[in-house]
């Protein structure tokens, strides 16, 4: 892990492995750090996982006035890596960012994977309010098997900071106009979704896949909002076979 500055943002950045680069954009609860599933992806490729501005120890959220600034921030990250085209995987809030990036910078994204991604809103099927669910209800929505969920080791203050920063893009309704930009995505896209995701129900993933020009949808059984933890093998297989 190292700090790196991109424009007005000074962020932590994790790098693992080598090979064709893949950018990992984390979800609203925070950066996974040195997670086993990232290590596994790094067995065959270079994984670049920046922390978002305003999360953990990374600064620069005040420079992100809207979602465009946030997407252009990732464009800066990719440019700074010196690669022209990169695979992008975004989870949760990071999925929303990844889709925005792929829409406004289609020339930079080779293949796109969206996992339990925010960004849409359906009046007929409203998302739960992730920010006010009491901890047991939150766990029940997040995990397919809450009783078997890994214990959290995260500092509560850091978690509050992360969720607070996430409100910039997810509160009060996690819709910043992505639906109008999805048709501009050119990259072949895989929408992955835990079949038991209660934070972002799978119907949202199906809708994303329907609106992105060249996208497929795949549900992962036995997993909620964190398929990379609850069904690591199925998740890794889906990702590696799609990225090739």
């Amino acid at each position: 892990m190292q700090f790196q500055t991109f424009g007005a943002a000074s962020v932590r950045l994790w790098r693992f492995g080598q090979g064709h680069p893949v950018l990992w954009l984390h979800g609203f609860e925070g950066h996974p750090g040195d997670a086993p599933y990232l290590r596994r992806l790094a067995e065959t490729r270079l994984v670049i996982a920046p922390e978002h501005p305003g999360f953990g120890e990374s600064e620069g959220l005040s420079a992100m006035q809207d979602i465009t600034d946030q997407a252009l921030h990732f464009r800066r990250v990719i440019r700074a890596l010196g690669t022209r085209r990169i695979d992008v995987i975004g989870h949760c809030l990071g999925g929303m960012f990844a889709a925005e990036l792929a829409a406004i910078s289609p020339h930079l994204v080779r293949r796109l994977i969206l996992v339990g991604s925010y960004g849409l809103w359906d009046d007929a099927n409203p998302l739960p309010d992730a920010f006010s669910l009491a901890p047991p209800a939150f766990a029940a929505a997040k995990w397919a098997k809450p009783e078997a969920a890994p214990a959290t080791t995260e500092d509560p203050m850091t978690r509050q900071r992360n969720l607070g920063s996430a409100t910039k893009f997810l509160w009060p309704i996690p819709d910043r106009g992505l639906i109008r930009r999805l048709p501009f995505i050119e990259a072949p896209t895989l929408v992955l979704h835990g079949a038991q995701d209660g934070l972002v129900p799978p119907a949202y993933g199906q809708r994303l896949a329907a609106l992105i020009p060249n996208a497929g949808f795949q549900a992962i059984e036995g997993a909620g909002h964190m398929p990379m933890l609850e069904a690591e093998d199925a998740f890794t297989n889906a990702v590696t076979s799609f990225l090739g």
């Binding site: 920010f131 006010s132 009491a134 203050m157 978690r159 509050q160 900071r161 992360n162 969720l163 607070g164």
Partner: peptide, 18 residues
């Protein structure tokens, strides 16, 4: 009041929470 409504994340800075 529902405790969640009284303390949404990010309403107070870390400095003030402490």
């Amino acid at each position: 009041t529902n405790p969640a409504y009284e303390a949404p994340p990010g309403y107070r800075s870390s400095k003030s929470v402490q």
